[in-house]
Structure formats: structure tokens, C-alpha cells
């Protein structure tokens, strides 16, 4: 029977997505429905709950912490778009060049941060970002005449500090995505273009970028989702995410505190759902904008 379906172009795709869909329904849809249910309740523990209708949602839009978190996440997300797409892309293109020697070592090193325990990374970055003039980053800034900055103390510098650690952690991974995309581009195309007199920049602009578009869309989507789900870095850099004046308060940190410190499961679910909704809308806008649904390369 299965064999028959497998030969049917109409039915086969359903069989192909069946296992994924099954696990997805059980382990994702289930818990999500449950949290939607919770978001209409004011919970006391898991047992006692009081139905409050849309109150949690109404409260959310008057919650200055929530609004602050949305702003912080947006800043961070924009920041990752500026750093975490161009940098890895340039690295990947340069590493793809046949003139590049020792690729494996470079890749290994760029890749190591993503595997380094974040506890350790946070400890090192706290030293690097030490607010005194002797701090490593501040000393480097001093060389080019910029006065010492209070990195982990000034609320305005909190997001840039997180961006720094995020760039360090994620560049290698994004580079892998781009490298993967690049292996699909044949060398002959470049050579042909080179013979036609196209210089490096022109080749990059007219061949590499368009062919990498699906991967760029993917990485941008990841940045968008990751940008709004930012949690671990903030959590580690400041004691359990307690950044001065909430300079690095993110939605996920706020949600986490609401659920696990303040024990407001219903409200936490509301934060989570609204946060998901924000990301979803932005993603759809972005995908629509980049022509994702047209099924073309």
C-alpha cells in the first residue's frame, strides 16, 4: 500500500510530511494550545486559576516593562541584521576563494565560540567589557581616542554589549549557512564572468548575492526570531538578567521572570503569545517582501 502511495505524486507529499507533522502536533501544538488556555487565566500555581478573560492582554499593553522589552528586542534585532548578515557573508565568500589557504583552521576558530560554554563566555566578556579604563575593550577604544565606556552599567550600552557577544557567538554558525549556499554555485559561472571582464565586486553583486538569496532570507528570518527571543546572553551577562535600569530587559527574560520568579503563569503565557505574534507578523512581512512565497530561486 505504502509503495503505491509512494508512486503517486499527489499522495506522496502527504506521506513525506506525516512523521514531521505528527511529532509537531503532539509536542508543539499541544503545549501551545495549553498556553493559550492559560493566557485567559490568573493562575495560582497550576491548580487554582481564575478566569479573567482578556485582562492579561489588556494589562500587557499598559505594562511599561513589556513595552521597554519590545523596544530593546527591536534594537537588538536591527543590530543583528547589520552585523550578523554582512560579516558571515563576507567571511564565507572570502573563505570560498581559491586563494585562501588554511580554510579549515579559520573555520574551526570562527566556529569554536558557538560551542564554548556561555558561562565561560560571559565570564570572559565581563572582563573584556570591564568599565574601568584598564578594561580591554576600553583600552582599545582609548587607542583611537574614545573615552572609557561603562559597558555593562550604562543602560544605553547594554544592547551593544549583547550584540558584541552575539556577533562572537553566531558569526561562525551563520557562516556555515552561507558556505553551504555557496557550494551550490558553480565555479564556471564566476570564471565566465571574469572572462567577460566583471570585477570582484560585480561578480559578488550579480552572481553571488542573487544565488544566495534563499539562504539570506533564511538567515534574516533566523535573526528576526533570534532577535526577539534573546535570552541566554542577557541572562548570563547580568545576574539572572538584572540589567541596570532594565537596559537589556528582553521579552524572553521578562517572560521567564514572570513565570518562574513571580509565579504568574497566565500572564507569562500572554507575554509569550504576544511575543510570538509580533515575531510572526514581522516574519510574514519580511518573507512577503522578499518574495518567499513565489517559490522561485
Amino acid at each position: 500500500m505504502i509503495r503505491k502511495i509512494l508512486n503517486d505524486k499527489k499522495k506522496a507529499p502527504w506521506l513525506f510530511i506525516a512523521p514531521f507533522l505528527l511529532l509537531f502536533t503532539v509536542f508543539k501544538v499541544g503545549p501551545i494550545l495549553y498556553s493559550i488556555f492559560l493566557s485567559f487565566y490568573k493562575m495560582k500555581g497550576l491548580n487554582g486559576g481564575e478566569f479573567v478573560g482578556l485582562n492579561n492582554y489588556v494589562d500587557l499593553f499598559h505594562d511599561s516593562n513589556f513595552i521597554k522589552a519590545v523596544v530593546n528586542n527591536t534594537k537588538y534585532m536591527i543590530g543583528t541584521m547589520i552585523t550578523l548578515i554582512p560579516l558571515p557573508l563576507i567571511f564565507a565568500v572570502l573563505l570560498d576563494s581559491k586563494h585562501c589557504k588554511g580554510k579549515t583552521i579559520y573555520k574551526a576558530i570562527l566556529f569554536i565560540p558557538s560551542l564554548t560554554s556561555l558561562v565561560i563566555a560571559a565570564a570572559v566578556f565581563k572582563i573584556l567589557l570591564y568599565e574601568g579604563e584598564t578594561g580591554i575593550v576600553n583600552s582599545l577604544l582609548g587607542l583611537i581616542g574614545i573615552p572609557a565606556q561603562k559597558w555593562l552599567i550604562s543602560p544605553g550600552l547594554a544592547i551593544p554589549a549583547v550584540l558584541l557577544i552575539a556577533t562572537w557567538r553566531w558569526t561562525g554558525i551563520n557562516m556555515i549557512y552561507f558556505t553551504t549556499g555557496l557550494t551550490g554555485i558553480s565555479k564556471e559561472m564566476y570564471e565566465a564572468a571574469a572572462i567577460d571582464g566583471a570585477n570582484m565586486l560585480q561578480r559578488f553583486y550579480h552572481i553571488t548575492l542573487p544565488l544566495l538569496k534563499p539562504v539570506i532570507i533564511f538567515v534574516a528570518t533566523l535573526n528576526l526570531i533570534g532577535g526577539y527571543q534573546l535570552f541566554t546572553e542577557v541572562y548570563m551577562l547580568w545576574n539572572a538578567g538584572a540589567s541596570p535600569d532594565n537596559g537589556a530587559l528582553t521579552l524572553a527574560v521578562y517572560l521567564y521572570k514572570t513565570a518562574f520568579s513571580y509565579f504568574k503563569l497566565g500572564y507569562a503565557s500572554t507575554i509569550g503569545l504576544v511575543m510570538g505574534l509580533i515575531i510572526l507578523i514581522l516574519t510574514l512581512v519580511q518573507l512577503k517582501f522578499t518574495g518567499f512565497f513565489k517559490d522561485e530561486v
Partner: peptide, 21 residues
């Protein structure tokens, strides 16, 4: 009280910072 965690967060992140810094 049950609000202790919240109080601690407000003091840590807003009150002390704005008073001292």
C-alpha cells in the same frame, strides 16, 4: 511577602541604579 522577588528586581534594577549612578 509573595512580592519579594518583584521588589528585589525593582530595587536592584531601577532604584539603586538611578540613585547611585
Amino acid at each position: 511577602s509573595g512580592l519579594y522577588a518583584k521588589a528585589r528586581d525593582i530595587i536592584n534594577q531601577e532604584v539603586l541604579f538611578n540613585a547611585i549612578e
